[in-house]
């Protein structure tokens, strides 16, 4: 077993607070940076797929941009959007529900 410590698994160092910021603010910003990074990866992979498929003639250049979902696809997308919103913002909903029973 490799005993070396991974760079990502170092002991946490002290983080000097930014005046006026709550810890939550810094955590949220950190998560946003990570999310933007993840999204960039997904887009890059999708771009690679489009270029590869275009290169071998499976799709024509610009086919994705010209794509217009039919009614069934539009409904499937709407369902997926709502699922994603409910999932990503689950914590906000739970807190609102919790506060609703606090009087």
């Amino acid at each position: 077993m490799d005993e070396r410590q991974a760079a990502s698994n170092q002991a946490p160092s002290a983080s000097r607070p930014v005046p006026g910021h709550r810890a939550l603010d810094d955590d949220m910003l950190a998560m946003l940076v990570a999310l933007a990074s993840e999204l960039t990866l997904v887009r890059a992979r999708q771009d690679a797929m489009e270029r590869i498929l275009t290169g071998v003639g499976v799709v024509t250049d610009g086919a994705v941009d010209r794509f217009e979902p039919d009614k069934a696809a539009e409904m499937a997308r709407a369902t997926e959007r709502k699922r994603m919103i409910a999932n990503v913002f689950r914590a906000v909903r739970m807190r609102a529900e919790y506060e609703g029973v606090q009087t």
Partner: peptide
Amino acid sequence: FLSDDLGRLHQKS
């Protein structure tokens, strides 16, 4: 989602 779904919960509060 924010105005309707969550709005109803905060309205209840």
